[in-house]
Design a protein around this nucleic acid. Sequence first.
DNA 1: TTCATATTCTATTGATTGGTAGAATATTGA
DNA 2: TCAATATTCTACCAATCAATAGAATATGAA
Lengths: 227, 227
Amino acid sequence: MSISRHELFDTLAIVARALGNGNRLELLERLAQAEAPVETLASATSLSVGNASQHLQQLRRAGLVTARREGRQMFYRLTDERIILLMGLVREVAESNLAEAERLVSRLFDDPDAEGALEPVSRDALRSALEQGAVTLLDVRPEQEFRVAHLPGAINLPMDRLDQALEVLPRDQEIVAYCRGPYCVLSHEAVQRLRALGLRVRRFQEGLPEWRAAGLPVEHEQPMMGQ
Amino acid sequence: MSISRHELFDTLAIVARALGNGNRLELLERLAQAEAPVETLASATSLSVGNASQHLQQLRRAGLVTARREGRQMFYRLTDERIILLMGLVREVAESNLAEAERLVSRLFDDPDAEGALEPVSRDALRSALEQGAVTLLDVRPEQEFRVAHLPGAINLPMDRLDQALEVLPRDQEIVAYCRGPYCVLSHEAVQRLRALGLRVRRFQEGLPEWRAAGLPVEHEQPMMGQ
DNA sequence: TTCATATTCTATTGATTGGTAGAATATTGA
DNA sequence: TCAATATTCTACCAATCAATAGAATATGAA
């Protein structure tokens, strides 16, 4: 009967162990954005192609990613949106329980957040603010990524066009900026630069992948037909 | 700037790696019930005391458990309720993506679920059924565990008193049985025995720890004072 | 067919992990 | 203080893992 309890936990451990390596977590974080071929994933994580391939095989064996061949390239993608939630939860638990993780997270964005004014906006807080039309939502990812999917009602202003901010963004309303996820540095930088311009900006704590994985709606830009 | 991105993911990997071993997952599952001394944890997982202690040290280093000394015993407990959610997500992802995990899960309870009639009740389904007073909730854990905490309105009928079911439970209303968690076999067995008595019983998919970790209310039996 | 490209496979290395047994430490009670 | 108990520490071996380089495979184009 419960003979195979051990087997069962061993099998669950396969999934956890696949997440137990920094390089693989980084690959997964990149895959949370969009599917990609090995070469792209390797350079995004500064791994050799061979090494990236090995790790991707492990992720595949653990059932976390699937592969699809297109021409001479193999495209990898997450098998399941819940993997994003899983990584988010690992991050939360790590941040609140591992002193070192917390230290790293705050150092990663050499935070000058004097008064907690840079306090990020949580997903729930963002949702209710959006429902009340209380904030302007700003997507600072490259235009190409924005076109594929973005949060409902977001304005796209990529980092290299941030100097146009005063023409596009309201001075009187609070702005919430987001990018690819909690460890994407784009929105951090954007917030600092926009504040220097006198705008009231905060950062969304998460990013597009988490929003989508939570089952919330995203908008797609239709290149040809008017929606 | 993002120099320490790698360091960061490596640190997150520490937490994931701590979950990447069947014995440690089993220890954590036991700890999700209640705190316990090493000896108890060792026998619950059929590990040697020394071995269990080692694994507990690793969990401690990863920030997942804390220890407290009481007399000559060390009591371990989870640092964070979210660890239960984390394990639940690992299980979900494993079940839906790892063919083998699924096979093991269904074999663990040599399921004679002919018509999917044994289909378990999800947390959300249970909540709305309870709100409507549509079900009787049955806790089949030992009385001692029931006293510490149980789901609101639950009736306690431990496995060894299951033959009193017809006196205590309604024949006309659906019954939902639960125990310690998704891998606790008590409720499985209870469902089968109660069905043999002609009662309409289903199993709650999760257990008390998951319910509590989701932030839902639990009841405590006050041994001395009235409510 | 042959060549170039993208990826995976294989073999090897050094580092880390899990299990085990026995020694060492801390606490309680005599 | 001493003995008994609970737990942790240390040392060891076998197994697994991560990284690397080079060979092998698969695809598309010439």
